[in-house]
Simulated assay, not measured.
Amino acid sequence: MKAALSISPQWLNPRDSVTLSCEVDKTSTGWRFSWYRTVSYRAGLPSLSDKSYSLQPLSDNGTTADSYTLLPAGPTPTGGYVCRAGRGDPVYDTLYSEPQFLWSGDLQPSVSLRISPNTTQHFTSKSLSLSCEEKGNSTGWRLMSYREKRVKSGCARWESITESTCTITTLNRWYSGVFWCESGSGEYSNAVNITVHDGDVILESPVHPVTEGDSVTLTCTFRYQETNPNPKTDFYKDGVLIKNETTGEMTILTVSKSDERFYKCKCAPGESTESWVVIH
């Protein structure tokens, strides 16, 4: 039997609590739950079967409750989490759950993930570059991603910060997922949720959170822009039409928390998917 972990919310908001929930066979009782944070593989610690991560216990004795609260949320809790449950005497333990991840889009003091082009939506067949930019004396960072429900090295031939940039020359839809930089000691950079589209229209929106009071520009981009450089564009917020533009761009001059919503655009060639714009 295998436990199943869920995290709510999976993207951190400052000062919010985060709840881990562990699900096992609902027809039986008497379970005791153990909670773990993933760290780089180390001999002597329990590990996932593929040895991609070792597991650091969050508490010494586990809990009788099937949920565990991380409070307050902030830079420290970002990373991967695993649970399992045990019952009986002698104790029968379930298999470890698949790791689930808690991410933050906020820039971190040790390292930041930078991407080019600097947007969350991308076209198939285009290129994308990602790099871990160190700050201070931080070392040993590598690019990671969570795609197709699996943890993967972000670039097959790029395993350390000494090779500073990973370039994906031809994007495909299976590159959609969350990318981040991770250190050997288990620190995480900001995370970026990348989506790759095979349609004709994407919405270019900020990769990093926008500061309240700043301006932000959303751009509707057509795959074959050179043939129709400025199509008439409709912009939507939470599915409601908010603006018509002839330039393909919409600027919010002074953003506030109320502007933290889903946005998309529509023009003659087609319609983008939605992107969430984060305001801090």
Rank of each mutant, 00 (worst) to 15 (best):
S17D: 13
V18M: 08
T19N: 09
C22E: 00
V24T: 08
D25V: 02
D25C: 04
D25M: 08
K26R: 09
K26G: 05
T27L: 11
T27S: 15
S28Y: 03
S28T: 13
S34E: 09
S34Y: 12
S34N: 09
Y36R: 05
R37Q: 15
R37H: 09
T38V: 11
T38C: 14
T38H: 07
V39Q: 04
S40Y: 03
R42G: 00
A43E: 13
A43C: 01
L45N: 04
P46G: 06
S47D: 10
S47C: 07
L48E: 01
L48T: 04
L48I: 08
L48M: 10
S49W: 02
K51N: 14
K51E: 15
S52D: 12
S54G: 11
L55T: 00
L55M: 08
Q56H: 08
P57H: 08
P57Q: 10
L58A: 08
S59A: 14
S59Q: 13
S59F: 05
N61V: 06
N61P: 01
N61S: 13
G62C: 10
T63K: 10
T64E: 13
T64V: 11
A65V: 08
D66T: 07
T69G: 05
T69P: 03
L70W: 00
L71R: 09
L71D: 11
G74A: 05
G74C: 04
G74L: 04
P75M: 07
P75Y: 10
T76G: 03
P77I: 06
T78E: 10
Y81H: 09
Y81D: 01
V82N: 02
R84W: 09
G86V: 10
R87A: 14
G88F: 14
P90M: 14
Y92M: 13
D93C: 08
T94L: 08
T94N: 08
T94W: 02
S97C: 12
E98N: 14
E98T: 15
P99H: 09
P99F: 06
L102R: 02
W103H: 12
W103M: 10
D106T: 06
D106F: 07
Q108P: 00
P109M: 04
S110Q: 04
V111S: 01
V111L: 00
V111F: 01
S112D: 10
L113F: 02
R114P: 01
R114A: 10
